[in-house]
Nucleic acid binder design. Structure first.
Lengths: 188, 188
DNA sequence: CCCTTTCTTGACCTATCGGTCAAATAGCAC
DNA sequence: GTGCTATTTGACCGATAGGTCAAGAAAGGG
């Protein structure tokens, strides 16, 4: 019938996502996207329409990736400890300065456009995940105020992700995590 | 002897600081600075040399402003409560999306150039201020681990400043503050 | 093998970026 | 008022931004 694309669409979105995640939307140029994907400008526009539409697809891909890390079943306390250990371990890596694409996008777009709305929804989903973990723990320990501790958890996660962009201090980042975890008698 | 400038240098830096604070360094154009200061491009370059040098002067001005809010004497607990009340009250304002210039600059520049180093120093000074408050409270309540609670305070301040850019939720922001304040048996 | 359709290529577009500079202007000392 | 000097002005610079598009290339159905 006609010529078929020379690339895998989803693979391109993944590569673009990495660039956007590392550099942010505004600071990523079409040149950067061309270099990262191996596609020329015309192909990118022919396939995705615009930089903004491509970014939206990247956000959606990140959303899927992110949901894959959500709590589903098993020991909720163990989940929580692993969750924060991962944040700290990634955070202290010298070349890890990209943080979390959801939080980055909330900061970059909120109140500006549809990307901000999408990012906000994803932030809310992350929050709900932590609320679900807190709820699961509360079933064994009824004295927990789920809404309060959920806020402490998301705030700590946010702090670690953002501060670790510029402060590679394991003790410092661990302390932030432990401050939220103490409600559950947990530590990392 | 010769012609004198038509403007007050410090006033111009103040106006430029507001723009940088609101929009960030990269997202601020010379056009923005010209509009905000009322000076033409040539005058800005003639006076400050470059956009980067002007930003450095803005950082220094912010540093002075910031140090003016540090704890010096008086009731340290009262200081802490006022400190966080201010963060929350400013944070919930609909048009307050600029956060803190120090934190913004740490996130924008760290590891890139001299602006990042300057911002890092200013962040450390803010941290020291909170450590001093914690120390003053610890003199009355010796069971406090100053370094730990200092980390909780700076982390909470960071979270409130950043999250409030995109989440105008007083209950949420207050909870973040209270999570750090509970070490001192304080609440807002 | 050919024709249709789609994808690919890269030159080109306008707008804007930070920055420069020669000419015009205006303070101040005398 | 005159002359020196610094400031002001805005046109101009090359680089780069996101985006467009006509022409060339290639895949698939017949």
């Amino acid at each position: 019938m006609s010529r078929t694309p020379d690339f895998d669409r989803d693979e391109i979105i993944g590569k673009a996502m990495e660039v956007f995640w590392n550099k942010g939307y505004e600071n990523t140029s079409m040149r950067d996207l061309m270099d990262a994907t191996g596609l020329l400008k015309g192909s990118l526009y022919n396939t995705f329409g615009s930089k903004e539409k491509l970014f939206m697809l990247c956000l959606e891909k990140y959303s899927v990736y992110s949901r894959g890390l959500f709590y589903k079943k098993g020991d909720p306390k163990e989940y929580l400890v692993k969750f924060f250990k991962r944040l700290v371990d990634e955070g202290v890596k010298k070349d890890f300065t990209k943080g979390c694409l959801i939080m980055n996008s909330c900061l970059e777009f909120m109140g500006k456009n549809a990307l901000g709305e999408k990012a906000s929804d994803m932030f809310a989903a992350t929050e709900l995940n932590l609320a679900n973990v807190a709820k699961a723990i509360a079933e064994e320990n009824s004295s927990l105020e789920v809404d309060k501790v959920k806020t402490n958890l998301i705030s700590a996660a946010f702090s670690i992700r953002e501060i670790s962009k510029f402060r590679k201090d394991r003790k410092f980042l661990k302390q932030i995590a432990n401050n939220a975890l103490r409600d559950f008698d947990l530590m990392i």
